[in-house]
Design a binder for these strands. Structure first.
Length: 273
DNA sequence: CTTTTTCCCTGGACGC
DNA sequence: TGCGTCCAGGGAAAAA
């Protein structure tokens, strides 16, 4: 499930393939992708557009065009983008295909069809994001003080607060568990109850968990792939995620699985307090 | 206002 | 082998 490190990996891989190139043909095969907008309308808007930049905000991929138009892609659970010079290897679950002016193409696949493509004007982006997203955890503007401010007074479990994209943008179920393990904080603790020291450690834990994910090109559990088709390796480095029953790498106690905020949650009952 | 629950989707895992 | 059931979870929307 693509979270910030996975989306950043996709962005970095796609950027050199897209920038400076024109969308020569756009085929959208699943109307859910652009709902409620007609997919033919979206395809028509994108044809002829020349890519100026490929950016990321939280888990959103931002394809900026020279015209000032923007394509916002959210991969949700199972969306993948593949870039290829000789046609798509497999046709399964293909929801959209973009042919570039160099003859290569970008294929969007999505087994569960939760992903979305949205076309906006660049001047609409700020409003779109500020209604949905908090700070970027890897930007200099993300400070322990800023995190404290956003957690203050909240009674929800700290893990639920981290999953809330308005707290900070880009952390999902895997990296929330990994960050909380690094910070030695119990995911069930009320977010507003953490003291200043714990917030500082959590701030560092979030950054380190996300950086570790990016360094390993993300985590491939089943569907996620980089645009060249390779898998990430972060799944081999998980400290807690999916490790119930296995010993904690820090204190040896068996990792436990529970549910927090409706999500499967792994933590060490020995050293996460 | 905040927090929780439900819904959208498909396919893999599992029990019988 | 085949069927039914559960589970995975990001985010929007509804409910509490």
């Amino acid at each position: 499930m693509p979270e910030l490190p996975e989306v950043e990996t996709v962005r970095a891989s796609l950027e050199p393939k897209l920038v400076g190139h024109r969308f020569e043909a756009v085929e959208i095969l699943d109307s859910r992708l652009t709902r409620p907008v007609d997919p033919a309308e979206v395809a028509a808007e994108l044809v002829g557009e020349c890519v100026a930049a490929v950016d990321r905000r939280g888990k959103y991929l931002i394809v900026r065009f020279e015209s000032g138009l923007v394509l916002l892609i959210h991969l949700r659970m199972t969306g993948t983008l593949a870039h290829s010079r000789n046609g798509a290897a497999s046709k399964s679950h293909v929801r959209a295909v973009v042919r570039l002016d160099d003859g290569s193409d970008v294929t969007y696949r999505d087994v569960r069809r939760f992903g979305t493509w949205l076309v906006l004007r660049a001047d609409e982006l700020d409003a779109y994001f500020s209604a949905r997203l908090g700070l970027e955890p890897l930007e200099p503007g993300f400070s322990a003080a800023g995190l404290a401010e956003r957690l203050a007074g909240r009674r929800a479990p700290v893990k639920a607060a981290l999953l809330d994209q308005r707290t900070l943008a880009g952390v999902g179920n895997i990296y929330a568990d990994e960050a909380l393990w690094r910070a030695r904080i119990d995911p069930r603790r009320p977010a507003g109850q953490l003291d200043a020291r714990e917030i500082r450690v959590l701030h560092r834990g979030i950054r380190r968990a996300l950086e570790a994910g990016i360094a390993r090109q993300g985590a491939t559990l089943r569907d996620y792939r980089t645009p060249d088709g390779s898998s990430g390796s972060m799944q081999n480095e998980f400290k807690v995620y999916g490790r119930d029953g296995e010993p904690c790498l820090r204190c040896g106690r068996p990792i436990e699985k529970t549910r927090v905020g409706g999500r499967g949650t792994w933590f060490c009952p020995g050293c996460q307090r």
